[in-house]
Amino acid sequence: MRVYLHSRTWFVYFIMVIAILMSIRHPVLILIGLESGLLWWKILGRKLRIAHIFAALFLLGALAVANPLTSSNGATILFYLNGRAFTAEALAYGLLFGAVLVVTLLWCVILSELMTTDRWLNVCGRRFRKTGLVLTMVFRFFPLFTKQWHRIREGQEALEGGSPVGLKATFRMTKRELLCMLTWSLEHGFVTADAMLARGYGAAKRTFFNRETYKAASIGVAIALLAAFTAVITLAIRGGMEAEIYPYVRIHMDGVMDIIGFAAFFLLCHIPMISGKVLREERRMRS
């Protein structure tokens, strides 16, 4: 049997994970987010390049240094810079903030990979069917637009014997390309409008065709995700998984509430990965 998760289940999954990462900034949660994010990365067949790691480290480093330069909160003063205190706590805060950003970005990449265009459409659903149609046309038009722009650039370079040299020539060339794109877009729009008319657009009230139905598996997963999310949030509100930075860095991670919270978040991140059938379906869709 083919097992797939409903688009809304996927959507809610990403929203929950990213919301927790961004609201409860706790090192252990970030590590869990990093681990599961990388696992998805691997499952989706993406390669981890050195450039990715460098980019992440750069972001982390930049934020870690930038925060103490602008904020002097914290009790442990490391040294003074231009009369301002450079504190260990501000450095830790910058590091934590950088780590949250890096992991959130990682999850956004995975979101964009797993939330295929038709999934976005299903999230929009019956209620927003006009938005859905506009969305699907944008999804179609955008790659076409970039492809055409590339073609126009090639065509113009082939005509002029190479890419323009100098700022003025580049400006002129870009202006020409833009004009060319404008005419092309208009022309494209007219023909597409005719093609839509020819296929009965505007004849009746549109229906929304959704290929997905809620299967038991999808509902089960959605309930499990929701339960895990509620657990994490409730525990956090009741004081679990606390990471105080100012005035002293104090990270709580050994209380019962903390450990249950970590486990719940770990489950939340990993639930859609547990079923081999779900993963197989994802791979099949991508092949």
């Binding site: 699907t136 046309m137 296929r199 657009y201 065709f209």
Partner: peptide, 16 residues
């Protein structure tokens, strides 16, 4: 008109 083959097939029927 649309970005997926299945949706392109369904497009005309949705219109009707």
């Amino acid at each position: 008109v649309t970005d997926r083959v299945w949706h392109e097939l369904a497009f005309g029927l949705e219109n009707l």
